[in-house]
Nucleic acid binder design. Structure first.
Lengths: 100, 100
DNA sequence: TTCACATGTAAGTAATATATTACACATGGA
DNA sequence: TCCATGTGTAATATATTACTTACATGTGAA
């Protein structure tokens, strides 16, 4: 785990709707349209949030064919457990270049 | 700890320079100009970053008069330790209103 | 063929974050 | 008086994020 991964993770979790998405997907995996209805959010906006979470490595999507023959994209939470404290930040800070 | 505090914390830690500031202040407390030189950063920009960290509650500033009579603002790290995992996010998500 | 429901993206706007330059004020010492 | 060093902010420019509307595609069932 380096500072770039961690800042990406923090950035992903810095928006309430993304916290809520994480909660919804941790309860159970859901496909995109289902999640959009559940979140009461437009799909384009949901895609933007999902992309951030996926780039941070804490959710993953996979395609499945439903019984009725439709292609569905299911998202689920990737497990993680990080102890966040100043000591960790100090260690990660060592590798940050002068320009940031 | 509620979701609003946590998103503020994550937002504060979502920038490499702020991770670096945390590292620098955890090593030792520093006054603003000193920190700006250490970080090789302009003071106005540093103030912006410090404000975010302060609003997140993980640094605090206090004024002191130096031996030479000048007013110095020292910043230091406020200790914290948070276990970050999907379970925590699920619990916090319960209190997020529909609009986010 | 038309509808319902799934996928995804392109284009635009509004809001926020990031960063720079310039300014103002106070103190101690040369 | 002038310089170095400390404090802080206002104004501006640039970049990114957040969000909306509109579009395009494919499938199965009525």
């Amino acid at each position: 785990m380096d500072y770039a991964e961690l800042t990406k993770l923090f950035d992903a979790l810095s928006h309430p709707m993304r916290i809520k998405i994480m909660g919804a997907l941790y309860e159970q995996r859901r496909y995109v349209s289902e999640l959009a209805k559940y979140m009461n959010m437009s799909r384009p906006l949901l895609y933007m949030h999902l992309r951030k979470l996926e780039e941070a490595g804490i959710v993953a999507g996979s395609y499945e064919i439903s019984n009725s023959g439709k292609s569905m994209k299911y998202y689920e939470v990737i497990p993680f457990d990080i102890c966040l404290n100043p000591e960790l930040l100090k260690e990660l800070a060592k590798n940050i270049p002068p320009q940031g």
